[in-house]
Design a protein around this nucleic acid. Sequence first.
DNA 1: GAGTACTACTTGACATTGTCAAGAGGAAGG
DNA 2: CCTTCCTCTTGACAATGTCAAGTAGTACTC
Lengths: 214, 214
Amino acid sequence: MKTTPQEQHGDVRRLVLDAAISLIESDGAESLSMREVARRAGVSHQAPYHYFKDRSGIFAAISQEGFAALAHAFRQVQTDGTLDTTSPAKAGFAAYLRFAREHVGHFRVMFRADISGLSSHPEAHECAEDAFTELLNMVARTVGHSADTQDALTFALMLWSQAHGLATLFLDGPLESRMGSRLETEKQVDAVIELAAHMVSLEAREQGLIPAQY
Amino acid sequence: MKTTPQEQHGDVRRLVLDAAISLIESDGAESLSMREVARRAGVSHQAPYHYFKDRSGIFAAISQEGFAALAHAFRQVQTDGTLDTTSPAKAGFAAYLRFAREHVGHFRVMFRADISGLSSHPEAHECAEDAFTELLNMVARTVGHSADTQDALTFALMLWSQAHGLATLFLDGPLESRMGSRLETEKQVDAVIELAAHMVSLEAREQGLIPAQY
DNA sequence: GAGTACTACTTGACATTGTCAAGAGGAAGG
DNA sequence: CCTTCCTCTTGACAATGTCAAGTAGTACTC
């Protein structure tokens, strides 16, 4: 069960991180144990400490990775060819929800002040700031605000709240039982996105921000 | 330091619960320890086990209490005399945010599937269902939907997402540093509420749901 | 009024955890 | 060959969650 040479350098760090992320995905951040992570990564119980200062160091690394990926996701919106012409905000909402679904492990850590380590790990904090900047840029691009006014900030926070609330409620909220199948859940999320995006269009039109064709 | 007789019956349960809640408020749910809770409550390390099956039992009790209080808060909206005539949704948003701010300990537990114990503790689950029902009722009352259509459900989920996202982002999110003082944060939250409520009004008017005076 | 049952805890024990300290083996450079 | 890193491993310790067993009081029965 030895690894091949080219896998070895710095590989344990990745192994540890992935083990941690998959543990968080399946059991929640609560029950992430250093020793279990080490066991899954196939290393001694102290090996993770070589790459991360302590348990919170792992969480911080996951936060950092997560915010970097989120910033990337924001940058992709309307930059690639898949511009959704039905609504300026819909693509943003969809991107956020997709990110949450595809990075559950990261998502569960990033937005919890008690474990994200943003306050104690500056490099993770910086990634979070970047992501926020990209959010503002995205809002400016897709809705048409001028990006650095108070109104634009408020608008961005409103959009972020809407998307974030939807993601957390459906990921970890008390709704699974209310919804039936996974497919039905998906449909319900889409319906909420549609409605929210429509409201954004109405608001934007009233503020004279976007072309009337929306 | 003995308690007086009338304080004694069932009092330890309350003491334990309050100790747990205050610990969660200050340090997050992550670092809630049974023994620390017992220590703060001034009892032996096993006393909590007399009232709660295990650690998750405490979390479940907190969830239950929280959802009951949330349902109560929903019921109060526009039932008391403080009807906010500027917008039908504003009072609801404000109530949700107030609940989150005044019950941080509860709030941090209720919406985390891994620790809320909703799936394993039926009595807590029932309280969560009740709260959701009250949310639907509140939306029907304040916005004017007919309460049991698909559209009403979608509308309610959208409102809940918006309020919940705002609450979680400002309570535990990566925003504290972006905002300046606590007062400034408060102002920002109010601005977002105002904007969101305005959008709800636009949407409701378009759907012909509420009197035009809004 | 002795015995029994029950409530509300306490004391003791054990495996598991996070983390500190001290190594151990190999590569790289002199 | 010796030293110095780098990448881990082994060992130890206090603290934690929780099981098992005990104990003081109260209530109720006969």
